[in-house]
């Protein structure tokens, strides 16, 4: 029996989503094959890395943070500082307009709160092409309407349930959001704290998108892992271990199909960047990346 490489090509293609505006914008997704599978399909955009900045931390305008290709603002905790919605929206807009890179805005995660907060943020940042979320089944209508009006992209979040993920995407498209304006957040858990569930959810979504050509799952995937990784005791007790904790979680999700990773540590950011640039170089058959 002669060897024949078992190449697989797929009928589906992941949507290419543009975030940010004008020259500073970035494209994510667009692949016709599984992560790193250059030998059998196209992966036009490498996974994109975002660095997380909380409102508190952005005040010191860390140099490192602003060299990231994407900034992710986490609004969680802004309520605790006693700020009202208008204030938060204005502050967000100020940062968005000053960083010169595309921005992801993650709300509080509380559906009721985000239903009010995120449309205000969308309005304050009109035209900036934010990636805004999390949009959940409880509050998708209001946030979708604001994103349509002010030209942003959405993060659709459903916890580790591929069927519910698909359902939310269907509901969003019914609201008039086109499929190239949605990014899927299947909820990402840290290494040792349920990572395998997120890993398999991402693999299933990516396979449904590519092999089954399921239009309602062909959106790029985002893995918001910085906060998840750095809250575990294994990261807190040892910085070097924390970087690897976050780095391994990130790489696993890249291999499972994540198109955007939100990281907290600049060290992890550099490490993953190094892996992506070094290990995809000199690869003879590749298209893209």
């Amino acid at each position: 029996m002669a060897y024949e490489a078992a190449i697989e090509t797929y009928s589906g293609k992941v949507e290419e989503v543009t975030i940010g505006k004008g020259e500073d914008s970035l494209r994510v997704g667009g692949e016709t094959t599984l992560p790193f599978h250059f030998f059998e399909g196209r992966l036009p955009n490498p996974p994109k890395l975002a660095l997380e900045v909380s409102h508190q931390r952005q005040l010191d305008r860390s140099e490192e943070a602003f060299k990231a290709e994407i900034i992710s603002l986490q609004l969680l905790g802004t309520d605790a500082e006693g700020k009202d919605i208008e204030e938060i929206a204005a502050m967000t807009a100020e940062i968005v307009r000053s960083v010169g890179v595309p921005v992801i805005v993650y709300g509080t995660g509380e559906p009721e709160r985000d239903r009010e907060l995120l449309p205000k943020v969308a309005e304050a940042c009109a035209g900036e092409g934010l990636l805004l979320g999390p949009v959940k089944k409880e509050n998708y209508r209001e946030i979708a309407a604001a994103c349509l009006k002010y030209d942003h992209r959405l993060i659709a979040q459903t916890p580790l349930d591929v069927n519910a993920t698909k359902q939310l995407n269907i509901m969003l498209t019914k609201e008039g959001i086109s499929t190239d304006r949605i990014v899927i957040d299947p909820l990402s858990s840290a290494l040792g704290y349920g990572m395998e569930y997120s890993y398999s959810a991402m693999e299933r979504i990516k396979l449904a998108a590519l092999a089954h050509n399921d239009k309602m799952l062909q959106m790029p995937i985002i893995a918001n892992i910085g906060g998840e990784c750095w809250k575990v005791k294994e990261a807190k007790e040892d910085d070097a271990q924390g970087v690897l904790w976050e780095g391994i979680t990130a790489l696993c999700f890249i291999l499972a199909g994540a198109n955007i990773l939100i990281l907290r540590s600049p060290h992890t950011y550099k490490l993953i960047q190094q892996i992506l640039s070094k290990h995809l170089k000199n690869y003879d058959n590749r298209e893209g990346y």
Partner: peptide
């Protein structure tokens, strides 16, 4: 030689074994 090649090679080996029943 690198991670991209490793993913390719490991994937092709496993597919050949599991999906094609290629004993070698």
């Amino acid at each position: 030689k690198n991670l991209a090649e490793a993913v390719r090679d490991q994937t092709l080996i496993r597919r050949a074994a599991l999906k094609k029943g290629f004993r070698p």
